[in-house]
Amino acid sequence: MSEDKPGVLDGAIPPAENTRLFGHDEAQAFLAQSYRSGKGHHAILIEGPEGIGKATLAFRFANHVLSHPNPATAPERLADPDPASSVSRQIASGASHNLLHLARPVDEKSGKVKSAITVDEVRRAGKFFSQTSGTGNWRIVIVDPADDLNRSAANAILKILEEPPKQAMFLVLSHAPGKLLPTIRSRCLPLKLAALDDHAMHQATAHLGLDIDGRTLAAAQGSVSEALKLVNYGGMDIVAAFEQVLSSQGPTARKAMHKLADALSSKDAETIFAFFVSHIGDHIMGRARQAALSGDIRTADHFARLSSSIGERLTVAQAYNLDRKQTIISILGELAA
């Protein structure tokens, strides 16, 4: 993660500062037209895989709304934000009085980003809406992502969504909307975004100065954040090491396990560890789907249960601060078996 921008990957542009968005033309057109009609929903659930531009789209739309507070005279399309405009400068610096970005806060003691969006963060939204806008403009809250809300925070957000203030707008982001409270989903207008196609991926990564080959492009699966992890965080090496563990036996396999576990449990390995957890999840569910499609329901059920078991084990290990290396070795041993 970037040292001066907690929560932002190395090589990425913070969404609040990003003036370009690649792909999602239909979603952009829908937001612009919906707002211009004056009948836009007060809460929009922008959902889709991680790293495809959901936050950039949210900030882009917020910039559009705050730059054109009268829907009837707003442009029919979302344009690239003008970095020189006062609205863009305020949004980029986090100084806008009309926009609040709710994300996982930084722990003052450790300096690391917390594991969840807490109820204290949501209370900031309540205070934000209670203050009268000096310009009479819209008040916009971006929840980024709502998947990170803990239970208390989710219930607190729900209360605001149930009785939204006048001229208030929520842009709720989610990588996995099925995990959100059904009551939150029911109060939002869903806007589904797909993973980026190859053309948009090449444009987006080139915009970041990232040169990706065909193998990396395939592994990234339409996600710019995955491409950054693969290139800037050694993700391709982690994938190769994992494949070696699965294809080896005996002492060779044990040596490969320990080497991979050392890399994933080293200091400042949080980003690549999260990448690894996601990768093994995809691997297991891929095996489950493959078995199900071939009619082997018993094996499919086994892998589905294994996915759940590993998820629970990782959650317990994090909650009780258990030795990460031993947890990883245990999981790798089970997968290799």
Rank of each mutant, 00 (worst) to 15 (best):
T252G: 07
L260R: 01
S265P: 11
A256T: 02
A256E: 00
A241E: 12
S266M: 01
A269M: 03
I280Q: 09
V277E: 14
S265Y: 07
A256I: 11
A263K: 09
G281R: 07
G281V: 09
K259V: 11
S247M: 12
I280A: 07
T271Q: 11
A269R: 05
H258G: 09
R254A: 06
L246P: 00
L260M: 03
R254T: 04
A253G: 03
I238M: 11
L264H: 00
Q244T: 08
G281H: 05
A241K: 10
H258Q: 10
F273H: 13
S247N: 12
P251N: 05
A263W: 04
I272M: 14
S266T: 09
L264P: 00
T271M: 07
S266A: 10
E270W: 06
V245L: 10
F275P: 00
I238E: 01
L264I: 14
A240G: 04
F275G: 04
S278I: 14
K255N: 06
M257Y: 01
F275D: 02
F273I: 06
S265I: 08
F275S: 09
L246T: 00
I272A: 12
K255Q: 12
F273Q: 11
L246H: 05
K255D: 06
A274T: 15
S247Y: 08
S247C: 09
H279D: 08
F273M: 15
A261Q: 05
E243H: 14
A261E: 00
V277I: 13
E270L: 08
F276C: 03
A241P: 01
K255G: 13
H258V: 14
S248V: 09
K259Y: 08
T271P: 05
A274P: 03
D262P: 03
V245N: 00
R254V: 03
E270M: 06
F275R: 07
K255I: 04
S278Y: 13
D268F: 04
E270V: 06
K267D: 12
H258C: 06
E243M: 11
E243Q: 15
T252E: 12
A256F: 03
L264D: 09
T252Q: 10
S247V: 07
G281Q: 06
S247G: 12
A274W: 03
S265V: 10
T252A: 09
A240E: 15
E270N: 14
K255H: 10
S278G: 15
D268Y: 05
V245T: 04
S265C: 12
M257P: 01
E270D: 15
F275E: 08
A263G: 08
V245P: 02
A241C: 10
F242L: 15
K267E: 13
